[in-house]
Amino acid sequence: MPERLAVRKTYKLFIGGAFPRSESGRSYPVSSPSGETVNASLASRKDARDAVRAARSAFPKWAGATAYNRGQILYRIAEMIEGRREQFIAETRDAAGVDAAIDRWVWYAGWADKIAQVHGGANPVAGPYFNLSAPEPTGVVAVVAPPDSPLLGLVSVVAPAIVTGNTVVVLAAEDHPLPAITLAEVLATSDLPAGVVNILTGRPAETAPWLAAHMDVNGLDLTGATDPELATAWERDAAENLKRVLRPSPDAIDWSADPGTGRMTTFLETKTVWHPKGV
């Protein structure tokens, strides 16, 4: 009996909840879990533009969702990543990394309805005023995903940005895009609203400058920008509309370590509301 001929997968972009090919029609070769070379979409600046548009239109509803709802949706995603555990292990060849990624996602899911209590609160002003500070999401965040630790690293930059209500455009690791695409498939079938996470495969060196300079992007996570010169150039571009920038770490990141809240707070704004107290 001859061996069954496998159905091969086409790897596409993830924009606005759909899986389009790059508008440029380009692709680039990457290796599949089974070792053969497959084609991944090579995103263009126009794909980046479309992804920003999708992220922007998803933002008000996602930011306005209740924290409990966002937490529920994120936890559900963790369940679904768990369901695809074997596939992720095949794609990353790193079982411990996949498990850690699932646990990390669960950890961030739980932050949804706690971050405002930890980072906000009442301020005892010297006057007859109610005064409350609460964190709010920054907006659309462009994320250059780390090239190492393809799933754990990816999850560790995406989850903290969206759990607080931001929407993201993620530039997947150039050489290991497949876990990102599989994650996109998880997200597409989860309850996450379309456009909250958009994933572009290809060359960050090509698309990141467009995102860094994009005037409708509010934050830029350069964690995966390993070339210091490029990182500096992108940070400089980001200054044009005062994006909140998370710089690449000067040292190698231990993705298994406690991440703290910094990745969330970098893309949070504090809003303070005053109101007089009087009968």
Binding site: N123, V125, G127, Y129, N131, K271, V273, W274, P276
Partner: peptide, 14 residues
């Protein structure tokens, strides 16, 4: 900063 029914109020704790 959002001031409701007041404006230009500042405080070191805020």
């Amino acid at each position: 900063v959002v001031w409701a029914n007041t404006f230009n109020k500042f405080d070191p704790t805020s």
